[in-house]
Nucleic acid binder design. Structure first.
Length: 422
RNA sequence: GCGGCCGUGGCGAAGUGGUUAACGCACUGGAUUGUGGCUCCAGCACGCGUGGGUUCGAUUCCCACCGGUCGCCCCA
């Protein structure tokens, strides 16, 4: 019987969750700083939502969705990304009618994609993301990008690369699409199978094909930037000016197209430039989606967002050898000697905890030496030794593990003493 | 969906077609009845992913399966 975790999923044991908590708290703090509020949507949705929202031509919808039928015959899918769900909630609850606009939302939680696992890619992974819906001001594009960069910088990461592009509005995209079809059709038979399909379904994605990257036709392929109409190209310029104003460095890459169909105008990715980071260097991505809300039955509302993977963030932290600062595990470990002392110990431990101190004691009947070792391992600041003598006298020694200093106090004063020193 | 590599105690890891499967860490006990982190001694795999095959004999060779891992495509 194999009861291990399913392929592509993992348990996070305390050693790891400690780091996760630091990261999550950082994000929540940033969300307050940038004034984004949390939204929680279901982990599964109707399959149509992702087909419409993410796009039928995307890899996600074509081959990566965890789709199932429930007992009522409903066709459901574990969410592969967060934006479609947030947009759906925005439409469903008519957030566009609320006073606070734009709606600035953040989410954090598991996403699911059925893929072959490898480093930096699991079937269940965790995204933190934000969405700002209801504004078409280039300044908010820049805000989202700044937030994305801050998410890494606030944790101490440095080797980051911001890549930027514009995909233009509908009109620009259509013009570019036509140009791409005209350009690539003569070479159709020389391109890879995927690209032959892309030529019909989504020619834009030909540009980031890794197989045909070196095909001669790629070199002089029409760039989206040449097809931006006035509004689009002006919008892109404005976004860049805001980034310049914030002194955020970026590289424009006209081949950056992103894998999801809903993107318009601003598209960006943040990559790690650390040595030995592995094959996957994309840490996060995002962009503007001006047609999405309408596609999902809402009013004409534009939005922009980004999402990052916490798993990849952790890889980046490891690659850059960033140590997250973590709180001390225990303020005091109570060493108990002999059966008689155990009641006094329970009482003392309880009292200390009521004083909001982090306390633990031995439950394995270990010898003193082993109890000291446990205290070391838990990184406790103090130990209290409690044996028959102490029970008799009502006085215990409180020992500072680092300095070795000891101080004798009555039971009732232990909490106060430790609180003063922690 | 396709390809490479790997599968030995709680963890890391060596090794061999044949009689006791190194070593390190961790853990437990002792040297040392109540003050640890150092040192020394001792203990700790009836077993080398599962099943089948070759063989007098397999953890070691072969096959299949399972699991892990890395990479391709694509992405977070």
């Amino acid at each position: 019987m194999n009861i291990n975790v399913p392929r592509g999923t993992e348990d996070l044991l305390p050693e790891q969750t400690k780091r996760w908590q630091v990261i999550e708290n950082t994000f929540k703090r940033l969300a307050e700083v940038y004034h984004y509020q949390e939204i929680r949507t279901p982990i599964f949705e109707r399959t149509e939502l992702f087909q419409r929202g993410v796009g039928d031509s995307t890899d996600i919808v074509q081959k990566e969705m965890y789709t199932f039928e429930d007992r009522g015959g409903r066709n459901l899918t574990l969410r592969p990304e967060g934006t479609a769900s947030v947009a759906r909630a925005y439409v469903q609850h008519k957030l566009h009618g609320k006073v606070d606009q734009p709606s600035k939302l953040y989410y954090i939680g598991p996403m699911f994609r059925y893929e072959r696992p490898q480093q930096g890619r699991t079937r269940q992974f965790t995204q933190f993301g934000i969405e700002a819906i209801g504004s078409a001001d280039p300044a908010i594009d820049a805000e989202v990008i700044a937030f994305a960069m801050d998410s890494y910088q606030a944790l101490g990461l440095k080797s980051l690369k911001l890549v930027l592009n514009s995909l233009g509005d509908k009109e620009s995209r259509e013009a570019h699409r036509q140009a791409l079809v005209n350009h690539f059709t003569p070479y159709k038979n020389e391109l890879c199978g995927d690209c032959q399909n892309r030529l019909e379904q989504n020619p834009l994605r030909l540009l980031d094909c890794k197989v045909d990257r070196d095909h001669p036709s790629m070199k002089n392929a029409p760039s989206i930037l040449e097809y931006l109409n006035d509004y689009s190209s002006n919008y892109f310029e404005e976004v860049k000016k805001h980034l310049d104003a914030m002194e955020i460095k970026y590289t424009v890459d006209e081949t950056l197209v992103r894998g999801l169909d809903y993107y318009t105008h601003t598209a960006f990715e943040i990559m790690s430039e650390s040595e030995g980071f592995g094959a996957i260097t994309t840490l996060s991505g995002g962009g503007r989606y001006n047609g999405l809300i309408q596609d999902l039955g809402g009013p004409e509302m534009s939005g922009i967002g980004f999402a990052l993977s916490i798993e990849r963030l952790l890889m980046a932290l490891d690659a850059e050898k960033v140590e997250l600062e973590q709180p001390k595990e225990l303020d005091c470990f109570v060493i108990t000697l002999g059966d008689e002392a155990k009641y006094a110990s329970s009482k003392l431990v309880n009292t200390l905890r009521k004083n909001n101190l982090k306390i633990d004691q031995d439950y394995l009947g270990k010898k003193m030496k082993a109890q000291f070792k446990a205290a070391d391992r838990y990184n406790a600041k103090f130990v209290v030794i409690l044996g028959e003598e102490e029970v008799q006298s009502g006085v215990v020694n409180v020992k500072n593990i680092e300095t070795g200093e000891e101080q004798s106090v009555e039971f009732d004063d232990v909490a106060r003493l430790i609180k003063e020193r922690v």
